[in-house]
Nucleic acid binder design. Sequence first.
DNA 1: GTCTATATCCAGATAGAC
DNA 2: GTCTATCTGGATATAGAC
Lengths: 199, 199
Amino acid sequence: MISNAINTRKKNIRETVLNSALHLFTVKGYFNTSVPDIVKHSACSTGSIYHHFADKKSIAEALYNCLVERMETSLNEINQNYDTTKQRCYQIIKLLFELTENEPEVMRFMLFSKHREFIADIAPICSTKPFMIMRDLVAAGMESNEVQIMDKMVAVSVMFGGALRLIQLRLDNVLKEPVQDKLEDVFTYSWKAIENNTE
Amino acid sequence: MISNAINTRKKNIRETVLNSALHLFTVKGYFNTSVPDIVKHSACSTGSIYHHFADKKSIAEALYNCLVERMETSLNEINQNYDTTKQRCYQIIKLLFELTENEPEVMRFMLFSKHREFIADIAPICSTKPFMIMRDLVAAGMESNEVQIMDKMVAVSVMFGGALRLIQLRLDNVLKEPVQDKLEDVFTYSWKAIENNTE
DNA sequence: GTCTATATCCAGATAGAC
DNA sequence: GTCTATCTGGATATAGAC
């Protein structure tokens, strides 16, 4: 789930701990989760955990980097498999919505934890790398005349802001239905906002 | 700043503490702020603080309720002073953008702290009351034919998602310019997404 | 109502056997 | 590499003088 480690058979403490941490961090929050909590949930000993991770903070960091990397890979795949900006944007929202329903914990941790509160020097670049892919994607759409010329930050925010907002509402359980039910709608309207129809 | 207390002259510990707490919570985060930190910053003693607040959590609660209430008032004022959905949406985004630049701490605390992590029983209704005002506003726009008929959650998310996303980028310092510079653009494009032009 | 001094608890982290 | 037992600091919260 977390890593695509090679040695899947031998009990991998690192991975076990990361899975427990992901669960506990998203359910109780980082600060409400103690290392003893992780010990209990993962059934790994304190000693083992501290053998594999320098400290509690490092667990969160490893988790974060791992998930961001996975997201980056998925986004790059979408860029390879689809050619128009419109298709790519659609696929990205689809991916985000699927993740929200299938792995809400992952989504919650990636999008809505305040990482800066517990990860000391989060590389601002890394933190926003998936964001940058999306921004560049929209910018490319402007060059190919698919998207209206406008401020790039505005374009990417308008294109994905609605979907991200829906995800948040869903994770907060304000939205009761699966967020996928809204996929076609939210894409259609968000795209309508930025598309260039003065062809 | 925080409260409109009557007795502004006599040193008001409650208010002083709330101001310090807002500052510290947004800069360092709730969990990285200790009561001794608040003691130092506010220059109020531990004893005084615990005389006015049951515990640390209660400080955050008081702060949160106070800010949400203020926001609610502002939104209601906008509803009174403007009649079309379009104008109201514009004014709401304008308000949010002004708050972002003038009182970024307030904005950060309201929009992006994970309150559920530290406020025990946050009334889900209260937590989303400003959200509900916005939703109802957009819904009213559908009845008056200003806004296309669509799922209300989708509509409110698309209408305000872009602006909220820009605010987040600004608070995270990814966006370097004042977010107001984007006001006209983000409103224009977001509104374009949901407006009804089959009049 | 405000203060200082202090009790209590438990988190994060380490030591050292196996 | 994994474990149990334990240290230590600092956090929340209280006691009690003024």
